[in-house]
């Protein structure tokens, strides 16, 4: 096909096995979505575990959930939502060829992402201090179950809550770290002026990933922080 060779000559980003840029873009987009689909199932195993034990140990989990700092959790949710806005603005800037706006928003996303991890770090530190980290030094004695003032939470069941809290938020944080890595790379590429209104797939795909991680947190926040919160 002389056509495709012509395009290839014009577009250094077009890989040899694609006929045209649109095909390459569609492949990247589908690939990203499918990858996010597998991520849903990856977290899905944890959601299943969560559902089983929350159903079985609701009171103990309420008590454990109440020890989480809802202000920090909500702040982090807001931070992530803001980062999602900067991401979508970055994508828009890339598509409309506004290089400085693109770089600015990518940097803002990086700042917000780092802030999220920082706040998460503060929360983790507090868990260590309170001996709420599952393992040998775990302690959760004499914590009353919400709504049942004469009943103490079973420490073992609370430990399962904290185990899942750490696995779920830990995996989420790991995804954030990967996301920050991707965004650093995007920033460098944007700095070098690689993205044009014609070629900006990496920004778009990085954005999809970032939004997905945001959605996971949107669920983690109520599931972990808001069990049986009312007085």
């Amino acid at each position: 096909m002389p056509d495709s060779q012509l395009t290839a000559a014009h577009n250094p980003a077009l890989l040899h096995h694609f006929a045209e840029p649109q095909q390459q873009r569609d492949a990247a987009s589908l690939g990203t979505w499918v990858f996010l689909g597998t991520e849903i199932m990856f977290f899905g195993g944890l959601f299943c575990t969560y559902l089983v034990y929350r159903r079985g140990y609701f009171g103990d989990w309420g008590a454990a959930s109440k020890t989480l700092d809802v202000t920090l959790g909500a702040t982090n949710t807001a931070v992530l939502i803001c980062s999602s806005l900067t991401v979508v603005l970055a994508v828009w800037a890339a598509q409309t060829g506004r290089r400085r706006l693109l770089i600015g928003n990518l940097l803002a996303t990086l700042v917000l992402g780092t802030a999220f991890l920082g706040i998460k770090g503060i929360e983790y530190k507090e868990k260590f201090e309170k001996h709420h980290v599952p393992g040998a030094s775990f302690q959760f004695n004499n914590v009353r179950i919400p709504g049942h003032p004469d009943q103490y939470a079973n420490p073992s069941h609370a430990e399962i809550f904290f185990a899942l809290y750490f696995v779920m938020t830990g995996l989420h944080a790991l995804h954030m770290i990967v996301g920050i890595g991707i965004f650093i790379w995007l920033t460098v590429m944007a700095w070098k002026g690689r993205f044009t209104p014609e070629y900006n797939t990496p920004v778009e795909m990085g954005g999809l990933y970032w939004h997905f991680v945001d959605i996971i947190w949107i669920y983690l926040f109520p599931l972990l922080y808001l069990i049986d919160r009312h007085p």
């Binding site: 999602s84 806005l85 991401v87 979508v88 954005g207 999809l208 939004h211 997905f212 945001d214 959605i215 949107i218 669920y219």
Partner: peptide, 10 residues
């Protein structure tokens, strides 16, 4: 919230 993010941001 997730639907909003998926529909409009993604």
């Amino acid at each position: 919230k997730a639907i909003l993010v998926a529909l409009f941001f993604m």
